[in-house]
Amino acid sequence: MRSFLRQLAPACIALIVLTVLTGVIYPLAVTAVAQVTFHDKANGSIVTVNGKAVGSALIGQQFAAEQYFHPRPSAAGVGYDGSRSSGSNLGPTNPALLQVVAERVASYRAENGLADTQMVPVDAVTASASGLDPHISIANARLQAQRVATARGLTLEIVLAAIGRHIDDRPLGILGDPGVNVLELNISLAKAG
């Protein structure tokens, strides 16, 4: 016990010193360098349209109107709530998961005018990990293309070409997985008409 008490003084001082070093100097130094060298990224990669902030290039947002591509289901708050990142955490055999997926399959088909036998891309009917997934799969985007084209009075080719321009591919061709950035795609189509 005496040897424990004798270590308490260095323990307290060590915690104070290391807190200053790793809890104050370190994060503030990183902040300073980041704010100077990568100002926009360090502040959230905010996307503006006509000078107004509409979102972040990295964070998904909800779209409901038919002229927009729709994102994946989200479990973040009421959906894409940036202050409540979350997955559904539903297990693979949970009846609640199977029921909600079946409902989403039906509404995805109805929304996009697809046949009852059309298989639906898995990302379109499952909730993401973060609840803020900025991407959808290319297959998902292509199935929505006709609806968006009709609503905007554009040809299908123009919309498919726009999808192609907004694919975030795998770095080096192997890192992570590719997807279409929904917000950026929708912004580009809104500009096109």
């Binding site: 997955g87 055999t93 036998t117 059309q118 639906v120 499952t126 909730a127 991407h135 799969s137 975030d168």
Partner: peptide, 27 residues
């Protein structure tokens, strides 16, 4: 269990497929 309710989990050039509940597209 999802195959039976019309969900396409196959891997192709246009989607990674697989179990996507609780996964973001980029991972």
């Amino acid at each position: 269990r999802l195959n039976a309710i019309g969900v396409d989990q196959s891997s192709s050039a246009t989607q990674t497929g697989g179990n996507m509940e609780g996964k973001d597209i980029r991972f």
